[in-house]
Design a protein around this nucleic acid. Sequence first.
DNA 1: CTGAAAGCGCTTACAG
DNA 2: CTGAAAGCGCTTACAG
Lengths: 342, 342
Amino acid sequence: MSDGTLATPVGRPTLEEVARVAGVSRATVSRVINGSPRVSPDVLVVVEKAIAELDYVPNRAARSLVARATMSIALVVPEDTHRFFGDPYFADVVQGISDRLDDSDYVLNLQLTHPSSPSEKTKRYLLGGNVDGAIVVSHHSGDHFLTSLSRSLPVVFGGRPIGEAKDRDYYIDVDNRLGGVRGTQHLIDRGRTAIATITGPADMPASVDREQGWRDALAEAGLSDHRLARGDFTEAGGIRAALALIDEHPDLDALFVASDLMASGALLALDERGLRVPDDVAIVGFDNSKYATRGKVGLTTVAQPAQEMGVVMADTLLRLLAGESPPRVTTLDTELVVRDSS
Amino acid sequence: MSDGTLATPVGRPTLEEVARVAGVSRATVSRVINGSPRVSPDVLVVVEKAIAELDYVPNRAARSLVARATMSIALVVPEDTHRFFGDPYFADVVQGISDRLDDSDYVLNLQLTHPSSPSEKTKRYLLGGNVDGAIVVSHHSGDHFLTSLSRSLPVVFGGRPIGEAKDRDYYIDVDNRLGGVRGTQHLIDRGRTAIATITGPADMPASVDREQGWRDALAEAGLSDHRLARGDFTEAGGIRAALALIDEHPDLDALFVASDLMASGALLALDERGLRVPDDVAIVGFDNSKYATRGKVGLTTVAQPAQEMGVVMADTLLRLLAGESPPRVTTLDTELVVRDSS
DNA sequence: CTGAAAGCGCTTACAG
DNA sequence: CTGAAAGCGCTTACAG
């Protein structure tokens, strides 16, 4: 050893130290770490032993610097926090994303932002090379920034985005129109004729499409589609919308509601007005979340695979980042789950 | 210009380029970026102009590498995803954390893990120098890893952690025992005498302490504390616990419930059994979340400032990371909010 | 106040 | 298959 002072390694071990312990060069250790095939079996063993011995973990920053990749992806949530947290749909989606990412080297950066305008910090963060890609859930059409984000960064949307660039964006969705048809058709099959709907916000494709499905099914059956109230995908909104419908259309005998959470509110409202479910009013929800089974009467609902959607969102982004060409649009299936409410 | 080829800057601009445009050295630009006072006013102007012109943002990885700081903190959620998302308490806490972090240079890494045992990936991630600190919310006593995490990393807990190291940990909490006393005392003041409680999991300090407050208030009033059922901080658990209590103790005339979400379930259960609130059974919840106002009857509850707790959690960690000495324990106040249920 | 230079911990052609 | 060397984009003593 030419240098007398063998620095006591303080803090985390580096490649350098592993190399010294293993008696090889840094380059070789790096190859082992990265699973390069150009390493002889015996050297491999020695290096792996040294890595284990020192409990070596590569420095992320150093890696990022040379690889020009941050190995982190942003989860952008342009939504009121309580709505994000309050709807089990998002819990499933996030769980799915998290599950898929657990099998990768990427980590998830949570970016809560205001619905219509991301903060300057978020913008700089997303555009500043701090993440390799982004997943945007619950996108509203009003926002211009996120719509154009995909010009600078690989982006995957949860749900079809609105906007001029939509035929270029990657997104995961279900066929919401078909879901709307299925839910409504079920009510028609049950012999209902005065079928109202509670939709979601007009600036969200999921709302618009489910509503269209409702209209299509009614048209097909020769029924009227004038009984409509707009909710906001919250339970309170469901209550308000249902009360309005009951007052305006006392004749209604069925309700197709664009989310279980709103349907849960509708059940509360019907109960308050003394209307029986399904006897007086039959209901179909959407999601098949825990809200479908939390009340007294089990909710018939159009199930969508939220967790799987999360998995596919993450998977699509990962493939994009790996330079592959995943499908631009993935549409998963909905399924009618019949319970007591209709 | 000695070199004929002036490389076209592709990708993001670097310090080097800013320096060139401003006609100064990299070091000077770096000083401007970092707000060093050792920069002359005129140079400052020139450099800032160049930064704006190039829309320069410092490379995070390069910075981390030399600064030996990642500028990111982990939000560790050792909790079933649906419970985390389902309880508005967490929404508020996360909102608070996010708000406080927006004023800093730190970003939030979301780590969803299993309640009793974080994944290997999460462990390596937390211990591997990928974050500068961590905030742990909803900690259960069963977990050994997170309890000892503070030995390797600055950690702030949301709620008093259980475990041997508890007198060394940083945490933000409310006085849950006192909250329990306040809620229960209110029921006593209303003239109730057969006061039951629905508690949370036995492995969580918040549960244990609120239960103790209930006991203390009853003891003080000379009332019996044998009417108890354990919930799990979910609405479904509240329903089950309430039904059990009603069956076992038909004489009960009041209920102190350790969370609004469980109280919401209890209201459902009472309604199902045909018991009137507050006439037959008076109820007090805990949190003052949206669940306190979502049902037919407004819930009297012990309010805790969840969002502010989140802010203080982040603030405490930030101060720790800045080398300051924030208070080890911050206890915020609870407050009784009286509505219709008692 | 300012710049030249070293160094943070990696990866990756380039030789051999 | 393996190593020496350059370089990723910054910050920070060290001189001046």
